[in-house]
């Protein structure tokens, strides 16, 4: 009796979860099907599943057209760039914070922890002002006057480096603390210098946390549509998600072009890289979130 009950419960659970999964994935299915239509057919359709009469792939190829390629490349470049620096900074700072004793260490630690709770509303508009007044950039003089700073300048996608990275510093530090010092001491006795100790002894043992950092920053940077959306107006200097953001926000405005299939086609392409990152590094990404929760 109990066994039968348990079995039915399990089946109910599976069915319930499957329904939930369909709900969670439905928008993706909808965009994929929608992208197969042309604008006119889609406009006349109005169904929950826009299955095309005749499938077209033009809308996916739009991401690889002359308009689509530069943002696509920018997105890849920006993701690689920030992933590299985040990992590097997390290693350097995290290692030093975990292993070295020095005056003021507590102060740095407090700074790291406080930085994580500052609401970003306090910095959004001021950052915009600062970017526009940054000395020596975009025609500005040393006083920050005369030009437009980093607004509309592609460098704005690469130069800024906020305190978001400090979370990864903190995680790397915690992970170092759980690693006994013996290995490094042994390596040092064997005559390894700092760099060798770090690359040959420490890092191989810290691979999981590095994967956590790399996967999470890559995902975060790829999906950061808002920074380019806010600072860059030209599609060719922008990123793909930001370009989609421009199309998506104009859906509510008078701007005439409501080309949903094109929007969906671009969306489908821009989901692929983060999806691959997620599927391959799933374990680390989930671990990153969970550990941020548990340790943070």
């Amino acid at each position: 009796m109990n066994k039968v009950l348990r079995k039915t419960l399990k089946i109910v659970w599976v069915i319930g979860m499957l329904v939930l999964v369909v709900f969670m994935l439905y928008p993706f299915i909808y965009s994929f099907l929608g992208a197969l239509n042309n604008k006119r057919d889609f406009g006349n359709m109005g169904t929950l599943l826009p299955i095309p009469k005749k499938a077209e792939f033009r809308n996916f190829l739009y991401a690889f057209s002359k308009t689509g390629i530069p943002p696509l490349i920018n997105t890849f470049a920006r993701t690689t760039w920030y992933t590299f620096w985040n990992v590097l900074v997390a290693i350097m700072l995290g290692y030093v914070m975990a292993r070295y004793e020095f005056k003021g260490k507590k102060l740095f630690l407090i700074f790291i922890i406080c930085s994580q709770v500052v609401p970003s509303v306090l910095t959004m508009i001021p950052s915009f002002v600062m970017m526009s007044k940054l000395p020596f950039f975009g025609g500005n003089n040393w006083m920050g006057m005369g030009g437009h700073g980093l607004i509309n300048n592609p460098l704005v996608l690469y130069l800024p480096f906020g305190w978001g990275v400090l979370l990864w510093v903190f995680l790397f530090m915690q992970s170092m603390k759980s690693l006994p010092k013996d290995f490094e001491e042994a390596a040092e006795i064997d005559g390894c210098n700092f760099r060798l100790t770090l690359t040959k002894v420490v890092l191989p043992m810290q691979k999981p946390i590095l994967a956590v950092i790399a996967a999470n920053t890559a995902l975060g940077t790829w999906n950061d549509w808002f920074t380019p959306f806010m600072y860059i107006n030209r599609v060719k200097d922008s990123t793909l998600p930001a370009y989609i953001g421009m199309l998506a926000t104009s859906l509510q405005e008078m701007s005439g072009d409501r080309d949903f299939p094109k929007l969906f086609g671009l969306s489908c392409i821009s989901i692929i890289p983060p999806l691959l990152i997620f599927l391959f590094f799933q374990k680390y990404i989930i671990q990153g979130i969970a550990s941020a929760g548990i340790k943070g």
Partner: peptide, 16 residues
Amino acid sequence: GWAETLDQKQRSLILS
């Protein structure tokens, strides 16, 4: 684009 989007773009370019 057109309307608000276009306005915003042109304005920021001119101001800058």
